[in-house]
């Protein structure tokens, strides 16, 4: 065991990286591309994810909206629109890929888990970008929304970055739930979380107790940050919301890491 040869082997493998930097970058790009391809080839995911936020915006912002709501609703449905795909892409697909043994295959092959998660975050962000472009176009064309360029870009940036906590939330769910239970469970979390976070009905119209409860929801803090960028109905400062989201991310990373260890040690 402690022969010089054995030590040599251990040392050389410890100091020689498995893949070159170039190969690692290629791997990251491929993981992202393949995950995006797989995602976009699932009509059952793409169609509702694209249609719902746009349809809600057209219904409540354009057709039945009272004046002055257009910008506010753009931020609301923007949050709602990017949250869902992040939760579903991670929650449902990780659960599926875990259950069908794909994750286990990658773990036995020399595939870094970080690359897998990176690929999924990229495809979720790519999808979020499409929703943002679609929703912004509808808002500008049909909702008559006019914003300064830096505000359009700022809102897009907040919406893009805001998908990350929901990716992490979805990752934890995907590592915990069975493939069968995942779609229903994610829906059961997504829709109430959107509603109670004030994404469908303005938060101040909800009962006081629910307004208090909203503080526990990442969707609430996310939407508050989006409102601040466009300058409507925001609470006074943004840092408590940023802090809350950061804390939420940390908790999710911890939960996902624990769930990951458990699945790799007790898999049947």
């Amino acid at each position: 065991m402690n022969s010089p040869l054995h030590q040599q082997v251990t040392e050389s493998t410890a100091f020689t990286p498995w893949l070159s930097v170039r190969q690692r970058l290629q791997l990251l790009a491929l993981e992202a591309r393949m995950d995006a391809l797989s995602l976009f080839r699932t009509p059952g995911f793409v169609i509702p994810s694209l249609i719902f936020p746009v349809m809600f915006y057209l219904l409540f912002g354009v057709l039945f909206g009272q004046g002055g709501q257009n910008v506010y609703l753009l931020a609301s449905y923007g949050c709602f629109g990017v949250m869902g795909p992040a939760l579903f892409n991670f929650g449902v697909n990780v659960a599926n890929e875990r259950t069908q043994g794909w994750l286990a295959m990658k773990q036995i092959a020399p595939a870094p888990v970080s690359a897998y998660i990176f690929g999924k975050i990229c495809s979720s962000l790519g999808f979020a970008l499409i929703i943002i472009v679609l929703l912004f176009s509808v808002a500008a064309i049909f909702g008559g929304v006019r914003l300064e360029t830096h505000i359009w870009l700022g809102l897009a940036a907040v919406l893009m970055l805001g998908t990350v906590p929901f990716c992490l939330f979805g990752l934890w769910l995907g590592l915990t739930l069975s493939a069968k239970a995942a779609p229903a469970t994610v829906n059961l979390i997504y829709l109430p979380m959107a509603f109670l976070g004030g994404l469908w009905i303005p938060i101040h119209l909800l009962p006081a107790a629910l307004q208090q409860f909203a503080w526990a929801l990442p969707s609430y803090h996310f939407s508050q940050l989006a409102y601040q960028v466009v300058g409507v109905k925001a609470t006074a400062t943004s840092w408590p919301h940023l802090l809350a989201i950061l804390l939420f991310c940390l908790v999710m990373v911890a939960l996902a890491t624990r769930a990951f260890r458990q699945t790799t040690n007790t898999r049947q």
């Binding site: 498995w18 993981e31 393949m34 797989s38 599926n96 036995i108 092959a109 020399p110």
Partner: peptide
């Protein structure tokens, strides 16, 4: 090592070539 797990299956939306491409990227 190379491994075939029992009843493992791959994401159904990708082609065989795409799966090979991705898996190839795991090795130097």
């Amino acid at each position: 090592i190379g491994v075939m797990l029992q009843q493992a299956s791959l994401p159904g939306n990708l082609t065989g070539r795409e799966h090979l491409q991705l898996f190839s990227a795991y090795y130097p």
